[in-house]
């Protein structure tokens, strides 16, 4: 009974093997230009997250991205890492309700707590796919680590849309772009399901920063970089101490080794 199914899987596996062996599934291959390298506050061995930018980025996520993209690995309480106080976090989530079970096991909606993970826009993947032309928007929890060029790619996608009437006839022909397609300079294959999510003044920043497209894209990328690796600052701080310690110990070991070997060379 199951044999044909097993055979199909084996065959598809073999095809996958043959396909990568010959490079025929190289969907992303070809000339998508890499996104321009930007300077990020969190770059380099001593780089930290720009708290103000990341807080603005959270606002962009919450008001724009969260309509479709989940951030399932981050909890509301984690926002205190970005410099918000516990009360500010409670204030931010006071209007959010989440599904839960009450003590009798009945499904209820209750106010979100700081310990809750970010509420997902769709109850499940199938619902997310159904509402988005058959493909669920990716979760953004580790998106910056999950893409080549990391933050530059995220920023590049958010700012890299080219309207249909600005495309050259060659581009339209080569990538088979239709009037309703979204063309993005930095997306592999260029045609992206996501419509341009940001534009000037899409949000009104609480701190009065002018909400240009570039500003919003940079802020939300800063926020997502933090979401992808909340412990990055701790990692770098620890690293400096570990390497200084190892350097000292290596120096000491070298001195000991020299002394021990003094009579042999």
């Amino acid at each position: 009974m199951r044999k044909p199914f097993a055979r199909n899987l084996l065959v598809s596996g073999a095809i996958a093997l043959a396909a990568f062996a010959t490079g025929t599934v190289a969907i992303a291959a070809g000339g998508t230009e890499p996104p321009p390298a930007r300077k990020w506050h969190f770059q380099g061995p001593f780089g930290t997250y720009d708290r103000a930018s990341a807080q603005r980025g959270f606002q962009v996520y919450q008001e724009v991205c969260a309509a479709c993209h989940s951030l399932s690995l981050v909890a509301y309480r984690n926002l205190t890492d970005l410099g918000l106080t516990e009360n500010q976090v409670k204030g931010l989530i006071k209007d959010i309700t989440v599904s839960d079970l009450n003590d009798d096991g009945a499904p209820v909606d209750r106010p979100a707590r700081p310990a809750d993970r970010f509420k997902k826009p769709f109850p499940n993947l199938a619902a997310a796919a159904a509402a988005n032309n058959g493909k669920a928007p990716p979760d953004l929890s580790v998106i910056v680590k999950a893409r080549q060029y990391g933050p530059d790619f995220i920023y590049g996608i958010l700012t890299g849309y080219v309207p249909y009437d600005k495309l050259t006839p060659e581009q339209i022909k080569e990538f088979d772009v239709k009037k309703d397609d979204n063309f993005n300079k930095y997306f592999p294959g260029h045609k992206i399901a996501m419509a341009p999510p940001l534009s000037d003044d899409k949000v009104t920043y609480a701190d009065g920063t002018k909400a240009t497209l570039d500003q919003q894209a940079a802020d939300v990328t800063e926020f997502l970089a933090w979401a992808s690796e909340p412990h990055m600052e701790d990692r770098k701080r620890t690293g400096v101490r570990v390497i200084l310690f190892l350097l000292a110990l290596a120096g000491l070991m070298y001195a000991v080794k020299r002394t021990v070997w003094a009579d042999k060379h």
Binding site: P45, R235, K236, T238, G239, V240, V242, I243, L246, L247, A250
Partner: peptide
């Protein structure tokens, strides 16, 4: 270990 730590932490 110094080289290793450079990768682990940075």
């Amino acid at each position: 270990l110094i080289v290793f730590a450079a990768f682990v932490f940075f």
